[in-house]
């Protein structure tokens, strides 16, 4: 078997911005002194006049983006998820969400896979925060292909969008000619009848691997990739729950307020189902290599396999 290609979705983001920059003249990119890390630096190289470095002032950056959007530009604001969704939460809510301005938030370095920087920079709360803002679309792509498609979909959608990207290089799983990104539509990646694993972001590839391990034990797991957490593909979630009974959610995010909560919100109202939420269990992260952290917090294939098997 050939080596699986690995790319960090932040890299995909930077590359997609360049592509979209050629197509949309009114696309502008804002950063807060992290262009090298968020990969908007790639866009800066191609379109220096449309790359605005706001300095280390995320709240102001979001407000500037609101003003740009109010005057016809399509601004992408970038920082680490911690600062874009965390520090600037109220600016996103009041200056972008409330007036429903066409601002795209490209947040990188989400989750514990930030690695060595540790807990202060590992945002496991951004999905929860962004999901509560009325009208906000929340997307967490699973790989390079999906991340690039998500950027385009975000542009085509008129209104605020939160895009969540990672620092860690992750396997490319959607590299197929018939791949299509539909905002708000989940993707069934593996059929199964015993349990449904609903995953997002880098946990999708891990869940697929876990499903193969479960199969060897005679457990037939269905795997769904939810790239759009809001609006959630409720129809698909309900149908899968009906089909397999048990549901497991997997995300590199707190079990409070993220994909797991969104799925539970949906199922508790429509089809009460036993749900196991795999994620960060109401705790802060810590320093360490990303892969080791993902293993320690049980978000790799091995961890997912063990939890699903015991469920």
């Amino acid at each position: 078997m050939s080596e699986v290609k690995k790319i960090a979705t932040r890299e995909s983001y930077g590359n997609a911005l360049v592509e979209m920059g050629a197509k949309y003249e009114n696309l502008v990119v804002l950063d807060a002194d992290l262009a090298a890390a968020t990969k908007t630096g790639i866009f800066k190289k191609a379109y220096p006049e449309r790359h605005i470095d706001c300095g280390i002032a995320e709240c102001n950056m979001v407000g500037i983006a609101a003003g740009l959007a109010a005057t016809g530009k399509i601004p992408f604001v970038s920082s680490f998820a911690m600062f874009a969704a965390g520090r600037a939460f109220e600016q996103v809510r009041n200056s972008v969400g409330y007036p429903k301005l066409n601002v795209k938030i490209g947040a990188t370095h989400a989750g514990i896979s930030v690695g060595e920087d540790g807990a202060t920079h590992q945002c496991n709360e951004d999905i929860a925060l962004m999901r509560t803002i009325p009208g906000m679309v929340v997307i967490n792509p699973a790989d390079d292909v999906e991340a690039k498609a998500a950027v385009q979909a975000a542009i085509e959608h008129d209104g605020p969008v939160y895009l969540r990207f990672g620092r860690l290089a992750t396997p490319v799983i959607n590299d197929r000619p018939d791949y299509k990104f539909e905002l708000g539509k989940g993707v069934v990646l593996r059929e199964g009848k015993d349990v449904t694993i609903i995953a997002t972001g880098l946990c999708v590839a891990q869940s697929l691997e876990a499903a193969e391990m479960l199969a060897k034990d005679g457990i037939d797991a269905k795997v769904i990739n939810i790239h759009t957490i809001k609006p959630l593909d409720e129809e698909l979630v309900i149908a899968a729950a009906k089909e397999t009974g048990k549901v497991v959610t997997v995300e590199e995010h707190s079990v409070i307020g993220g994909l797991g909560s969104a799925v539970c919100d949906c199922l508790s109202e429509n089809l009460p189902t036993k749900v196991l939420k795999i994620g960060i269990n109401d705790t802060f992260g810590e320093s360490g290599p990303a892969v080791a952290l993902i293993h320690k917090y049980g978000l790799d294939a091995e961890g997912i396999y063990a939890k699903v098997k015991a469920f």
């Binding site: 979001v62 407000g63 003003g67 740009l68 109010a70 005057t71 016809g72 600016q91 200056s95 007036p99």
Partner: peptide
């Protein structure tokens, strides 16, 4: 009304964004 506002400190940023927008184009 050109911008929703009310949470103090935020309007000026939006105004700065509008002024920047005019300069860019």
């Amino acid at each position: 009304v050109d911008m929703s506002s009310g949470s103090l400190g935020q309007g000026i940023s939006a105004a700065v964004g509008m002024a920047l927008s005019a300069k860019l184009s």
